[in-house]
């Protein structure tokens, strides 16, 4: 564990608490993509399957994995059941097949061994890198977003961005690298570039998140 990864994980935790806060305080899931949230459940369940297969990394690792699976399922419940009436499916129209299909193909092509769990692990890494697409698509379509929603997306983007110095640090100190995680992580962070530009130049200056018309 190094400081980059620790702060990356903390940003990831923070993103979930911000999301819960947004839903519960505004009593609404307006502006959120249910599809993105479903994709995160798929990502966590397929990657953290090793919890149930006897792989033990650390107490920290296990607690975080359980938290991410549990909280992402709870968010689906909030969006699907408790605040269902505030969700607008006509805005959330990104076709997830375009994300799941290619991720599955990439998982089958690039993995560390051709076994069920390794393919699923690899699939989850690729799917995570693009899971934010439906959410960014809603921002693009509506051209604006609530400030708290942009804090959520920013925290999520910062999480994977901090994994990049973590990998560089690990390469120097441990001498090895995980090419699948690194390539997907770079793509994932890159997808946030436009969003971050508007976030840093508008939201953090106290202005509303609005895309140029």
């Amino acid at each position: 564990m190094n400081i980059f990864r620790l702060f990356g994980d903390l940003a990831h935790l923070a993103s979930i608490f911000i999301l819960l806060q947004k839903i519960q305080v505004s009593r609404s899931c307006r502006g959120l993509s249910f599809k993105t949230q479903v994709l995160y459940v798929v990502v966590f369940v397929s990657r953290y399957l090793d919890l149930f297969l006897g792989t033990w990394v650390s107490f920290y690792n296990t607690v975080m994995k359980l938290f991410f699976i549990g909280s992402s399922c709870y968010i689906l419940y909030l969006m699907r059941v408790q605040f269902r009436s505030t969700y607008d499916p006509t805005l959330d129209t990104f076709r997830v097949e375009y994300l799941v299909g290619p991720s599955l193909v990439l998982g089958l092509l690039f993995n560390y061994s051709f076994t069920f769990t390794e393919i699923l692990w690899s699939f989850s890494i690729f799917l995570e890198s693009v899971a934010i697409f439906p959410q960014l698509f809603i921002l693009q379509r509506t051209g604006e977003a609530e400030t708290i929603t942009t804090h959520y997306i920013a925290a999520l983007g910062i999480y994977r961005a901090l994994y990049i110095p973590n990998w560089i640090y690990r390469y120097w100190t441990e001498g090895s690298a995980d090419p699948i995680a690194i390539v997907a992580g770079l793509v994932q962070t890159g997808l946030y570039a436009d969003f971050f530009y508007v976030y840093f130049t508008k939201v953090l200056q106290g202005k509303r998140f609005e895309l140029p018309a």
Partner: peptide
């Protein structure tokens, strides 16, 4: 499993 650094990451 085990190959690849990412296995101990989240």
């Amino acid at each position: 499993t085990g190959k690849g650094r990412g296995k101990d990451e989240l």
